[in-house]
Lab assay of single mutants.
Amino acid sequence: EPEARKIVEKLINNGLSPEDVKRWAEKNNNPEVKKAAEEYQKR
């Protein structure tokens, strides 16, 4: 999901860690963003 990846990169560029992004995604019920954050961590 390229859109989710863009969101993850934007949040990380704004100073969030991938863990923060995953928590944000869970709080906002956004499994695509959570998955993208996990993939981002593996890179």
Rank of each mutant, 00 (worst) to 15 (best):
N14R: 14
D20T: 04
S17G: 05
S17T: 13
V33R: 00
N29P: 01
P18N: 03
K27Y: 11
W24T: 00
A25Y: 01
A37K: 00
E39S: 06
P18H: 06
E26L: 06
E38L: 09
E26A: 06
E9R: 12
D20S: 05
L11S: 01
N13S: 14
E9Y: 09
R23C: 10
I7A: 03
R43N: 10
N28I: 09
E32K: 07
K22Y: 11
L16W: 15
I7C: 13
K35I: 08
L11M: 14
K22C: 10
K6F: 09
K27I: 12
V21G: 00
W24P: 00
E1M: 14
K27F: 10
N14Y: 13
V33K: 00
E38A: 07
K22Q: 10
E32D: 10
D20N: 04
I7D: 00
V8H: 02
K42T: 09
R23D: 08
R5T: 10
V8Y: 07
K27W: 10
K10I: 14
V8E: 01
K10G: 09
A36F: 08
E3R: 10
P18A: 13
A25D: 00
A36C: 07
K34L: 14
Q41F: 12
P31T: 08
E19L: 07
R43K: 11
R5M: 15
A37G: 02
N29F: 06
R5S: 10
A25G: 03
A36L: 13
E9F: 08
Y40N: 01
R43L: 13
E39V: 06
V33P: 00
I7Y: 06
E39R: 06
I12V: 07
A36V: 12
K35D: 06
I7F: 10
D20K: 03
K35E: 07
W24D: 00
N13Q: 14
S17D: 07
K35P: 01
L16V: 06
R43E: 13
N13H: 12
E3Y: 08
K34V: 13
I12N: 01
K27S: 09
E38T: 06
I7Q: 05
I7L: 12
P2E: 15
W24M: 02
Y40M: 06
N30C: 14
E19D: 12
A4R: 02
K10M: 15
E1A: 13
V8R: 01
Q41I: 15
E38N: 05
R5V: 11
K6D: 10
E19W: 05
I12C: 06
E26I: 09
A25R: 01
N28G: 03
I7P: 01
N13E: 13
K34D: 03
I7W: 09
E1R: 11
I12H: 03
E39W: 08
Q41Y: 11
E19K: 04
R5E: 08
I12F: 07
P2N: 15
S17V: 02
G15P: 01
N28L: 06
N14L: 15
E26F: 04
E32M: 13
Y40H: 04
Y40R: 02
N30I: 11
I7V: 07
G15M: 04
V21S: 01
N29S: 08
E9P: 01
A37C: 06
E1I: 13
K35T: 07
R5C: 13
E26S: 04
N30Q: 14
A37I: 12
K22H: 06
I12L: 12
N30S: 10
S17R: 05
N30W: 15
Q41G: 07
Q41L: 13
L16G: 02
P2V: 15
G15N: 03
E26H: 05
A37P: 00
D20V: 04
E32P: 05
Q41H: 07
E3G: 09
K6Y: 11
I12Y: 04
I7G: 01
K22I: 15
I12R: 03
K6W: 12
A36W: 12
A37Y: 05
E38V: 07
R43F: 14
V21Y: 02
P18M: 12
V8F: 14
A36R: 03
P31Q: 10
A25T: 01
G15T: 03
A36M: 11
Y40F: 09
N29D: 08
V21T: 01
E1W: 14
S17N: 06
A25S: 03
A4D: 02
N30H: 13
W24H: 00
E26V: 08
W24G: 00
N28A: 07
V33C: 03
K35S: 07
R5Q: 11
K42Y: 10
N13Y: 10
K10S: 13
L16M: 14
K35N: 07
W24N: 00
E38M: 08
E38C: 09
A36E: 08
D20A: 09
W24A: 00
Q41R: 08
K6H: 10
P18T: 08
N30Y: 15
I7N: 01
K22M: 15
K42C: 11
V8W: 06
N29C: 11
A4C: 05
K35G: 03
P18S: 08
Y40G: 00
V8D: 00
E19I: 06
E39A: 09
L11P: 00
K22D: 02
A25L: 03
K35Y: 07
N28V: 08
V21Q: 02
K35H: 07
G15W: 04
N28F: 09
P31W: 12
K10Q: 14
W24E: 00
V33A: 04
W24Y: 02
K35M: 08
N13V: 07
K6I: 11
A4I: 06
A37M: 10
L16I: 05
V8M: 10
K22F: 11
L11T: 02
K27G: 05
E38F: 05
G15Q: 04
A37S: 03
E1V: 12
E3Q: 10
K22R: 11
P31N: 08
P31V: 09
E3P: 08
N14M: 15
G15F: 03
P18G: 03
K35W: 08
K27P: 00
V8N: 01
Q41A: 11
I7H: 03
L11N: 00
D20I: 03
N29A: 08
N28S: 08
